[in-house]
């Protein structure tokens, strides 16, 4: 009985080793499968979540401000670019920096559906439908690995953000 148990443990370990051929955790090369509503366009430059950031940053030109943060223990930096009307953050991946989030800083920029800071709640509901309400003051549109969140305060849009979904 004991002999069989020892053999079983060894066989199980060997089989598991052979069978788990290394789960790849590399970031995808794709833009995360987000639809057009979740692509933000600024001065003709399309910015999609999880897209390779290098070309986008080069097209957008010099940011008005830039900050970077190391993570607790990882190499590579989370970066935040400020382009006047909006902020964009990137995260480091094996394939270079990729777009992680975008959020509006003022009413000079708008979503693909024309929503900008200061717009009325009615306009948001016309665009995204009352069904998109999540909680008391937020409207969310989720597609693929991205999420657009519009926050309404006192009947007007106070925040618009795009974020890669990690949960």
């Amino acid at each position: 009985m004991r002999k069989n148990s020892v053999l079983l443990v060894i066989i199980a370990m060997a089989l598991t080793l052979a069978g788990c051929g290394g789960e790849s955790s590399d970031a995808s090369d794709s833009a995360g499968g987000t639809d057009d509503a979740l692509v933000f366009t600024y001065d003709g430059t399309e910015i999609a979540l999880d897209a390779d950031a290098e070309g986008i940053i080069s097209a957008l030109g010099e940011p008005k401000n830039y900050t970077e943060e190391p993570s607790c223990a990882f190499e590579g930096l989370d970066k935040t670019y400020y382009y006047g009307g909006f902020y964009m953050t990137t995260y480091p991946s094996d394939n270079g920096d990729r777009v992680y989030s975008i959020w509006f800083a003022d009413d000079s920029v708008q979503t693909a559906d024309g929503i900008k800071i200061g717009d009325s709640q009615e306009k948001v509901e016309e665009c995204y439908g009352a069904d998109s309400a999540s909680g008391e003051s937020a409207y969310t549109l989720t597609s693929g690995e991205g999420r657009l969140t519009v926050i309404v305060e006192d009947g007007a849009v106070s925040s618009v953000s795009y974020e890669l979904i990690v949960d």
């Binding site: 900050t67 935040t80 400020y82 959020w103 999540s134 937020a138 926050i151 925040s159």
Partner: peptide, 12 residues
Amino acid sequence: YADEYVEMPLAD
């Protein structure tokens, strides 16, 4: 420390 850190507002 150079610039104030900004983060995306949260829905909740």
